[in-house]
Design a protein around this nucleic acid. Sequence first.
RNA 1: GGGGGUGUAGUUCAGUUGGUUAGAACGCUGCCCUGUCACGGCAGAGGUCGCGAGUUCGAGUCUCGUCGCUCCCGCCA
Length: 585
Amino acid sequence: MNEYRTHTCGELRAEHIGQSVKLAGWIHRKRNLGNLCFIDLRDHYGITQCVFDSSSDLFDKIKDIRVESVIGIIGEVVARESVNKNMPTGDIEIKAEEVIVYSAADVLPVQVVGECNEPEELRLKYRFLDLRREVLHSNILLRCKVISEMRRLMNEQGFNEYQTPILTASSPEGARDFLVPSRLNPGKFYALPQSPQQFKQLLMVSGFDRYFQIAPCFRDEDPRADRSPGEFYQLDMEMSFATQEDVMKVIEHTMGTIFNEFAFGRSVSQAPFMHIPFRESMLKYGSDKPDLRNPLIIADATPFFNNSGFGVYDAKVANGEQIRAIKAPNAGNKPRSFFDKFDAYAKEQGMGGMAYVAFADGGAKGVAKFFSEEKLAELKQTFDVKDGDAVFFMGGAKKVINKFAGVVRNMIGEALDLFDKKSIKLCWIVDFPFYEENEETGAVEFSHNPFSMPQGGLEALNTKNPLDILAYQFDLVCNGVELASGAVRNHSPEVMYRAFEIAGYEHSVVDNKFGGLVTAFRYGAPPHAGCAPGIDRTVMLILDEPIIRNVILFPLNGKAQDLMMQAPNTVTEEQIKELHIDLKL
RNA sequence: GGGGGUGUAGUUCAGUUGGUUAGAACGCUGCCCUGUCACGGCAGAGGUCGCGAGUUCGAGUCUCGUCGCUCCCGCCA
C-alpha cells in the first residue's frame, strides 16, 4: 500500500503464505515465552499474530515494549503451527524480520483489552484509549453507517442537505440556550441553535422545497442515560407543499429501511406504522411513548365500578377518580406475594393500593369476594379474562392515573416476561392537543410547539374550546423511546397571531420573538411540514445500548464537562474584557 | 433544586459482631520458560480505606457532616 504497510491487520489469509508483507498497528497483546514471543498486532481492520524468535536480534528490541505501543513489522506470512479458529487471520502469522517502533506507550491508565468496567470518569478522560476497544469502536462505526444511509435515503427521495448557522439568536421557547457573547456587539449574545427549526422553515419560504441536514442541536439541560448534556444530532428534514402523511411516508421509508438494514435478527414494524392518537395512547399505554413490545393494554374500568360491590373503588369513582384495569395473562396461579408486590408499589407511590382478581382452577381470589356471580361474569367479559388469568385494578385522580397505569403496565410486562425483546416496534403518536391547561394557574398554554398548525386552522381557533383543538403534530416512537417529532407548520401570520393570542401573547411578542419567520411568511410562504428523528437514539436502539455516551465519540459527563479537553475552562482576563463581560462568581 | 445508589491498591472487588501487620484478581517491576493466543511459573513494589468530625481502650466497619461520581424526578423536541 505505502511505506507504512502493504496490508491491514485484518486481511491476511492462507493464500498469502510465502509473501513478504509490512503491517502497522498497536500491540494488542504480547505473549513472551522466553525464547519465543508472540505479538497480536491490531489496527482498525483486525488482529494479526506476529512471532519473534530469540535467535534473531529483534527479540531484544520488542522484549521491553509495552502493549498499545504503535509498531511496524516486516516479515513473511507463514502457516501457523497451531491454527486459531477464533480469529479471521488465525491460519497465518507473520515471521518478523524487521520492527519499527513508531510510538512507545506508557503504562496505561485504563485497559484497552478485555472487560470494560473502569469508572466512566477515567474512560472519558482517556477517551482515545476507550475508543480503541472493540465494542465502542464498532458502535461508532455503526453510527457512521447509519448516518451514511440516512444521507443516501434522503438524497434518493429528492432532499438536499443544507448547512444552517451555528451562531444564531436565542429563542424563548423550549430549552435553556447556550449563549455566546458578541465581541463586536457589547452586551449582546448569540445562542447556539436548539434545532435548526426556524432556518429550515425559512428554507421552505426560500423555495428549496426539500431540505435535510445531519444537524447538531444544543440544549443546556440536565442529562439522562438516554440524553447527553449539551449537544446531540438529529436528522432534520422539512418539505414544502406537503401534508402530515407525506412527511410520515418519507420518514417511514428512511427510518424503516435503516431499522431493517440494521435489525440484526430482530423483527421490525413494516410501513405504514400504526397511528395512535395521543389521548388513546395515554389511556391504553399510560404514556405518549408506548413500548409496543409489551402486549398489555390498559382498560378504562371506571364504568365497571358503579355499585360494583367493591366499596373502596366504587367510592373512588363517586369521588371523581378514575379506575384502570390491566390484565395479567396466565398469572391466575401466581402466589399471593406476586400480587402483594404490586399492591406495595401502589402504596409506596401514594396511589392507595392495587386490587386484583385472580382466576384459577375455577375459583377466584383477591377482591373477587366483593362481587356477585353476575358481576364476576361481567368482569371476565369486560376485561377479556379467562380462567388462569388475573386482572389488576388501580385508581386515582384523572391527572395521575394514566401515567401510573403506564408504569404498572411495564412492571407487569417485565414480571411476566411478556416483552417481545426480539422486535423493533415503531408507531406514530398523532393528534396531540394544541393547547393544555397550566395545572397551577389554569391558563391556556401551548402544549408542544407553537409553530405547528392547529387542525381546523383559523376556524378552529375562533370557534372551538382551545383545549379541544388538536395539532398537526406527531411523534415517531420506537420501543418506548421518542425517536422523532414532526409537524405541519403554521405558515400563516394570521393563524399564528391568533394562536399566540389564545395563549395570552400580544402580536408584538410574536413579532419580537419570531420576527424573522413571521416577516418571511408575509412574502409568499408555501405550506410545509417536517420532522426530526434523533440520530443518537436511533443508534442506541439499533445497538440495544442503554447508555447514550456509548454511541458518541467524545461525550460530556453528567456535569457537561469534557474531561479530556478540560472544557469548560477559565479564559484569560483579556478575552473576558474583549467580550465586555464582568464576572461575578 | 429534590430523591436513590455508590466511594477500600493504577483498575475490578472481598473485608465476618468494632479487635493483631487491610486481602484477591488484573495491571506494573524483576527473574525463569521455543508454539502461545486471557500463555505459564517464581519473587516484588504498590493503601492517609473520598474528606472532616464524633462515639470507643480500639473504627475500613457505628453516628453526623461534607465532597465526587452515577441513576431517577424536576427540566428537556
